[in-house]
Design a protein around this nucleic acid. Structure first.
Lengths: 240, 240
DNA sequence: CGTTGTACGTGCGGTAGCGCACATAACCGC
DNA sequence: GCGGTTATGTGCGCTACCGCACGTACAACG
């Protein structure tokens, strides 16, 4: 894999950091630490105490739950629109889920203590974090519903779209195995569905790379969940 | 149906209200309004502005999402351990989900403005609400995972146990149709599963009533999700 | 430039849960 | 105690997805 330089990373690539008022941002800016977030890195395990919160810029993190029998399912993804580690300020400090990087890249992290100090000012940072948390709740809820009622093809389209929204290009570096484990389905199922989507001209792929050819097509094959979540994020986080 | 008097209702029957420090509780107490919450009442629809938050005492409320095609699935339940309307203080004021009473009973409600004033003191009320919200997030996450991986029988056992924990007796006033709509499955599926559980001696039922005979048995037939959620609620809300 | 690890393709039987169409039976009001 | 309403029981074909067991082929590296 290419050891890409942190090509022009800035905190503003993260939408939450970008939407903080100048004063607040400048207070935390000195404490923002650029970190590489390589594929597979585990930011926290189920039950771990949090020492940092992470604001991804180019990386994408998957919050998922690993069951007793080893099976797992994604609860929510977090990319440049969000932050990893909300349980810090929500008061629990840990969660029963795990956070792992599913698309390598960069992000900024902030020490727990710094975050808490800013949060406890009960100002813009707190308001923003709470709004983001509510958006995250919507995404989790929708995941629950989607898992219950929608077909694998619909879910895969939704997932591709959500991932695409967090990336600058039309290409995902992503094996079918990985997608399967995100959606909590069999790898073979993804192979078949991906084949269908390719034959339909919506995507093309080769060994670990998926290129989206028709975003509109994916939206048509996706379930309503994609739109519900997207609109809710927009509603909650547009201003502020 | 018996038109039960509000037999000895007190705000302390709601665990959240009960765990507020005296000073905080006394400030809001004059504004707590006892309300009857009959089966089927909708506290808010998708997108509704919230005018109150509700602290159930004997009622149980179901937060669920209704899809475009009319199908639905429960995201989380709320009973005497919780509060309905978190999106008020999280900043969104609305959610894409719906809250409906699925076990009739009573609760206390608080005007939105009063709740916000208390929340904005950034004191015990805020801390408590955020902790509860984190617990709710765990429940929603676990619902997502459960929907993906666990059998109908496991899910039904989990659901019965969670409902039981919110009630004083071993009896649920509940049709199979209603349970089915909560779990987002066919009514016939519940009929069959309920039959199995009855034959196994774990429950007994008649037209709209389910009596739990063996809690331990249900726990054995349930998935890990019940325990994960229960422990997390306990961890987050035991003190404070 | 071939070897090898890893990703992807395919087939096949099994099954949980769905959708529909009814049959039965408990409770409710009169 | 009678009739109607609503809850529950049952059967049947169907489909999506699973679990397993392979075969194939890319692409990276020596």
């Amino acid at each position: 894999m290419v050891a890409k330089m942190p090509t022009q990373q800035t905190p503003w690539q993260n939408h939450l950091l970008a939407s903080l008022p100048k004063e607040t941002f400048e207070r935390i800016a000195p404490h923002l630490e650029l970190v590489s977030m390589p594929l597979g890195e585990v930011l926290y395990e189920s039950g771990d105490q949090l020492h940092h919160v992470y604001f991804p810029t180019t990386a994408i993190v998957s919050l998922h739950y690993v069951m007793e029998n080893g099976a797992s399912a994604e609860i929510s993804g977090v990319g440049n629109e969000g932050v990893v580690g909300i349980s810090l300020f929500m008061g629990g400090n840990t969660t029963p889920s795990r956070a792992a990087v599913c698309t390598g890249g960069y992000g900024y992290r902030l020490k727990a203590q710094v975050m808490m100090e800013e949060f406890n000012r009960a100002g813009p940072m707190m308001k923003l974090m709470l709004r983001y948390t509510q958006a995250l709740i919507t995404q989790m809820s929708q995941t629950a519903v989607c898992n219950r009622h929608h077909s694998m093809e619909q879910q895969m389209c939704r997932w591709l779209l959500q991932t695409l929204d967090r990336l600058p290009s039309q290409e995902l570096i992503m094996t079918q195995e990985l997608i399967a484990s995100m959606l909590g389905v069999r790898r073979e199922g993804i192979t078949e569905t991906a084949g269908d989507l390719q034959r339909a001209g919506l995507i093309s792929y080769r060994r670990g790379h998926i290129t989206v050819l028709s975003r509109a097509g994916l939206e048509k094959h996706s379930c309503e969940c994609y739109d519900v979540v997207r609109k809710e994020f927009h509603r909650l986080l547009k201003e502020a």
